[in-house]
Nucleic acid binder design. Sequence first.
RNA 1: AGGGCAGCCCGGGUAGCCGCGGAGAGGUGUCGGCCCAAGGGUCGGGACGCUCUUCGAGGAAAGUCCGGACACCGCAGAGCAAGGUGUUGGAUAACGUCCAACAGGGGAAACCCUCGGGAAAGUGCCACAGAAAAUACACAGCACGCCAGGGUGGUCAGCCACCCCGGUUGCGAAGGUGAAAUGGUGCGGUAAGAGCGCACCGGCGUCGUGGUGACACGGCGGCCUGGCAAACCCCACCUGGUGCAAGGCCGAAUAGGGAGGCGCUCGAGGGCUGCUCGUCCGAUGCCUCCGGGUUGGCUGCUAGAGACGCGUGGUAACGCGAGUCCCAGAUGGAUGGCUACCCUAGACAGAAUCCGGCUUACAGGGCUGCUGACGUG
RNA 2: GCCCCCAUCGUCUAGUGGCCUAGGACAUCGCCCUUUCAAGGCGACGGCGGGGAUUCGAAUUCCCCUGGGGGCA
Length: 116
Amino acid sequence: MYRAGRSVANRYLVLYYFPRSDESAPSNAATSSRIGFSVSKRLGSAVDRNRVKRSLREASRLSEARIQGGFDVVLIAREPMTELLDRGGAGAVEEKVLEVFRKASLLAPQEEQRPS
RNA sequence: AGGGCAGCCCGGGUAGCCGCGGAGAGGUGUCGGCCCAAGGGUCGGGACGCUCUUCGAGGAAAGUCCGGACACCGCAGAGCAAGGUGUUGGAUAACGUCCAACAGGGGAAACCCUCGGGAAAGUGCCACAGAAAAUACACAGCACGCCAGGGUGGUCAGCCACCCCGGUUGCGAAGGUGAAAUGGUGCGGUAAGAGCGCACCGGCGUCGUGGUGACACGGCGGCCUGGCAAACCCCACCUGGUGCAAGGCCGAAUAGGGAGGCGCUCGAGGGCUGCUCGUCCGAUGCCUCCGGGUUGGCUGCUAGAGACGCGUGGUAACGCGAGUCCCAGAUGGAUGGCUACCCUAGACAGAAUCCGGCUUACAGGGCUGCUGACGUG
RNA sequence: GCCCCCAUCGUCUAGUGGCCUAGGACAUCGCCCUUUCAAGGCGACGGCGGGGAUUCGAAUUCCCCUGGGGGCA
């Protein structure tokens, strides 16, 4: 992933993505993308890291239908993420997740035109 | 009643929708096996889903500071080394933990605090200051009792009085130094002094009584000896090492490749113990370096020194008995999001083999018992 | 998860109970030297990660925290 994939980022997140080349999933566009989350110890204690990971996982679940299928994705949280979660809550996290997926052009085309 | 002290407990709640992990059940999806007249039928519950039921972080899950269980290590045997503990008695699987008692200290009391063996086994240290830091001697000093000498005065002289120096004898720490000074205070005593004597206090030894014991109380004796062992050490007791990434099973992949060294029963080398001995293993074998491959699955994995209330023994820690219950097991690592209402407006913080403790962090709240200084009635 | 190690001026370090009010080098600042800069000389600034305990006395010994670093499939 890190060697061959491409990456985009904003202040709170880094996103690595790579098209799936898996024999068990032949119809790439039909299956939804796999998303992994990476939260390092720099972000705080175990409780803080779990909170960040859960908010990222919830944001990805709520917007799963809008994300283009057929990719492996890794989302890495950066240090200001804990402050964003404390201040803005889950809504702000979801907004930033969508922003970074839009930068990578991984949002489905029909969803792209709808102003959210 | 405020306050104080001790012990125990709780750690947001309720409802709805969506979502995550485990277990169990179902068999209308898919998958797999078998049969087939090609429509399907049947079996399975192994895999992926689906439906239903049920469970789903903590009092510290934390720090990893101790103690165990469990597992492995060519059975762990002996000695040394190393490390740990340290009043007494008990509890316990065990402990450096807990309970009770003792000693010392604090508080008016309830109660609280204390790593609390040995300094006459030995070695070492005690800076600066001070005569001296552990040994009672020297130096400085006091007394001028005794001896010898000198000087002055009185006296004819002997001799007497005073002074000086030296020796001898006796003396012990006042002034002062220091964190600490050779038992303390007072009185007597003396040339000057000193437990030299006496009284009280403190310490030591010994005897008696009480107590399992630490120790306490009382009698008698005599006055001999600072501190530091979280300095080395001595004594008593304890410890084999490594840790679930321990360990077991299955599968996949690569090249049983290259260089160097040692050795084949008189033996290289080998312990996941630092050394010695003992013991054991050991032959196209072992060690070091270079180079290459795999970063899969199952198991260990949660029913236990288990939880709950009851009875019972014990001052207590805790033990015993019968009853009821099953209460997380993830493996990129599961508890969340949204909405509504209520309250005291939610702190510290997330299981990773398990358990008993310790330590550290913590918003707030509840219950029980005890105490009575001060203030109010 | 389990097991180890370390912490002294801004940086690298010495110091193993009292001689430490902690020494040295580089860096910074000031003065001298030089026409000026560098080098050199003199001087200044600046530190024992935090708390408690033992001791008369702790950077040093013991305990608890804090912050770094490493190893184990």
